[in-house]
Design a protein around this nucleic acid. Structure first.
Lengths: 201, 201
DNA sequence: TAAGTAAACTGCACCGGGTAGTTTACTTTG
DNA sequence: CAAAGTAAACTACCCGGTGCAGTTTACTTA
């Protein structure tokens, strides 16, 4: 499955961008530096991406798609709730706690922090689809296994519990990534708290 | 209490910095622009602050001090837990959900995102003191009113529940600030979930 | 009350350096 | 040989920070 030379160069540029943006952010990284790291002439960079902005957007979209790819988390009416929910959370945790995701999120955040309109635009392109977590909660609530009055709030609570330990501290460089065991503990603790509040006995 | 002219100019500069940094961030704001907004000559800016960095740091320290000023939240062994915890959370929520705090946090985040070492240094200067939330949890646990095995985790969980609704979305410009009623609801919901998990019946 | 003084402020030119994006003339590769 | 890549110079800026001559302010002395 050989890539054409052009395709290869394109990948070199994208990989170099990820590498170099994550070190100092977008603004502080020049296109000259980027081309140098990619081992590509600056003109080639501009042949593949019209502007710096376009290159950044390409990376951001890649990130979004990764975060949004919804796997089929089958909701099972008869199985115990805790393991099902744990499985869903583990999937989110292991994604958000990966180096690539953190690094790219930092880049995106640095880029969008002061352009909320642009961020809104990007988000709306993807926010049509419900998350698998939300669907699961809706199913379990409709079957009377949970008592959740406000599903949006519940989703936000679960995400808050998770991200507060496995995403934001790492994004800010205040904590190292979680080990596999720590990830499992976090999922279990989050599920325990959530079900203590919402599960029907 | 009249301020000397120099003190007044200094305040003008600081206020202009808050105003102008919050619009486009630190990197994207020139010192010429800042001086113009402050109605002060650029030379005067540099007379008060040796470098741009020093000015930014001044703002950040101001933010930290506001966030850290711990009030005496008296723990009361005999009173019901929920209202006590709600009160503490409300104080944190109303601080974190204020425009000044959000705006300055955004500036600080944009500045430190790619300088984790510098952030570490700043944080360590302030992180000696325990938060009032942590103290309260320790007291309630020692008195057997709560069963919390891991207090640090519990603190992080509470902060996650709160910040996930009243801080991070606003920092990113995805949600408007919470109304007083929404703040109260958030505090109540967070307390309800927390106590459902940890309170001894 | 008038003259003097030190400190702070102003405005502007200036410096060294950096950047996004373009152009050109030439070379490599499929 | 046509499409893509290369190196290097080039345009047209912007920015942090400094130096300096001259002015304003507030306060004090004669």
């Amino acid at each position: 499955m050989a890539l054409s030379r052009s395709e290869q160069k394109r990948l070199d540029i994208i990989n170099a961008a990820k590498l170099v943006f994550k070190e100092n952010g977008v603004q502080a990284t020049s296109m000259d530096k980027l081309a140098e790291v990619a081992n590509v002439s600056k003109r080639t960079v501009y042949n593949h991406f019209k502007t710096k902005e376009e290159l950044v957007m390409h990376l951001v979209k890649e990130l979004w798609q990764k975060a949004m790819l919804s796997s089929e988390d089958d909701y099972d009416k008869t199985a115990p709730l805790a393991p099902q929910l744990t499985k869903i959370l583990m999937k989110e945790i292991s994604l958000m706690n990966s180096p690539d995701y953190i690094d790219l999120s930092r880049v995106a955040m640095g880029h969008f922090l002061f352009q909320p309109e642009a961020l809104q635009v990007e988000i709306e392109k993807f926010s049509k689809q419900e998350t698998s977590l939300q669907l699961w909660l809706e199913n379990a609530t409709n079957d009377g296994l949970l008592t959740v009055k406000n599903i949006e709030l519940a989703v936000q609570q679960l995400h808050g519990l998770i991200k507060g330990s496995c995403f934001w501290p790492q994004l800010l460089g205040l904590c190292p990534l979680l080990s596999e065991q720590e990830q499992i503990n976090l999922a279990d603790e989050s599920v325990a708290m959530f079900l203590a509040r919402y599960a029907n006995s």
